[in-house]
Amino acid sequence: MNAAPPSDADWGLMARAAQDQLALSQLYDRHRHYVFRLAWGILGEDAAADDVVQEVFLRLHDGRLKAQPRAKFTTWLYGVVINVAREQARKRRRFWGAAQADEVLSTHADEQADPARLDRLRDLGRALATLPIRQREVVLLRFLEGFDTAETAEILGCRQGTVKAHLHRATRKLQTEFQSPPALTHKETTQ
């Protein structure tokens, strides 16, 4: 399951976010990490992901978004993040590259973090970079975020069959290109 905090209180905060700065700040504190990492997975740049975080919470504030309180809050919020990230991607007209993968982690990762962990994240970033954006979104939501197929389809606004097809194609592609363990692959490429 997705790790975002499940809470009905989020809809209450959301209803007040347009007028109440405190409610908006609470939503921001609860969800900014999840918004950031999903945008990071799609765009591959820390600066672009930061922009998405700002834009998403700005939209929550200005009341432009049509909330659907019947849905799970995170499902709805992730749909917003996907749309904003796509817009951002269209503006920048570029996605992942190996250079960005290094740059991202050099700025946002803890300097004292395990180097093997950073290597694994960089390899994951490079793997995502090889996928078309729809397949990347499905892998991010279905595998990395842990949403089930129905929730992934709801977030992306498509049918469950489409989600399964994208996931299968993405898996075959990644299996072909990254058959060996990711950390080993990275060490080989850096030598």
Partner: peptide
């Protein structure tokens, strides 16, 4: 393929 990286991704802040 990416089991460990998945945990690292989820720890990303």
């Amino acid at each position: 393929l990416f089991g460990e990286a998945r945990a690292d991704y989820q720890a990303l802040r």
